[in-house]
Write a protein that binds this DNA or RNA. Structure first.
Lengths: 191, 191
DNA sequence: GTCTATATTTAGATAGAC
DNA sequence: GTCTATCTAAATATAGAC
């Protein structure tokens, strides 16, 4: 039936995107090969091109996957009522990934850093991706009545991206724990 | 004479390292080819291998060049007497590079981000490179009598690295200007 | 729709003339 | 020491059998 066929098709496509995200996160965009992704997704190499015409299309799909997940994660934080609680929940959520970050960096940040060096459309997609948490944080600060909401949002996401870079470079998850506490105190001080 | 010969040799080697730093900064390590570097240094492609046995050796030389420059820049900041003045001078120095950063990111940060994905010795060199400003800042905070000098140093460099990533991703040097002012106020508040 | 075999391209590295 | 021509390896992409 078309159902089982299209399910298999969807299954492979999704596995390829998931594989691309995983391998790209671990090894970076440029060093990742189609063969690496195919292997991670358990799909024969030649078959990849049935679903994605080029490597860049696969990278674009991986970025889009990150965007979907980021939006869902941010929406989920809105279960908290107060904006301060939401912002601190974001910080805790981000800091809970410290072991992964120590090994491979922030999935969004490393992607932005690498793809910003390119002049094709992929760098703009990354820009939109990083704008999601900044816009969301700005909204929370604005609800708190801060006129400088944008600056604070930029400072918060920058603090996270920066500590993610140091945590990764020094392979020390403890750095994130300490900076997370500092950021929570900072958010409290703005209330 | 040997002088003119060794001068020419030094000249080419230095041009290759300078070219490598420039091209790698603009395009990233992985996408940069030996041919790109040779062209930037105005040296014939085949001749590169007389000075550097592999591409990685050239990358290592580029990292070392950054380390030398960073150390010199930090020493130069010590013309200021007070640690607060030194730290604020560091912030101003870093922020003065905002146009470059908007185009290509922080030279050290983008290098660390990209090379941390590798398991060869190059990732450790980057780690040492980023440790330079952190150690230096820690020293200043300690001179100020702060017991939490290390945390503050990590927070400062992280704030810079983070805002550099956002400035680059959003192609907006103004972000750095505003965050720079915030950091200077923050340093003053710790005095 | 799936997959193997292969064409094409490119980049790292080397041999050897000068 | 310098440089050209070329080898080799690897990765993207395609052709075409099933």
């Amino acid at each position: 039936m078309t159902d089982s066929l299209s399910e298999r098709k969807q299954g492979k496509r999704e596995r390829l995107v998931a594989g691309a995200r995983e391998v790209i996160y671990r090894h970076g965009v440029e060093t990742t090969t189609i063969a690496d992704i195919a292997q991670a997704a358990d799909v024969p190499v030649g078959n990849v091109y049935y679903y994605f015409k080029t490597k860049d299309e696969l990278v674009a799909a991986a970025i889009d996957g990150h965007a979907q997940d980021a939006q869902a994660a941010l929406r989920s934080l809105e279960r908290h009522r107060a904006p301060q609680a939401r912002l601190k929940a974001l910080v805790r959520e981000l800091m809970s990934q410290r072991e992964q970050v120590a090994d491979y960096g922030c999935p969004l940040g490393t992607l932005c850093s690498e793809l910003d060096k390119r002049a094709d459309g992929l760098d703009r997609s990354c820009s939109e991706l990083l704008r999601l948490p900044v816009d969301w944080a700005e909204q929370q600060f604005r609800t708190m009545g801060r006129r400088d909401a944008r600056d604070l949002a930029v400072a918060l996401i920058a603090a996270y991206q920066g500590i993610a870079l140091l945590t990764n470079t020094f392979r020390d998850p403890e750095l994130m724990t300490r900076e997370g506490r500092r950021l929570e105190r900072w958010i409290d001080s703005l209330a």
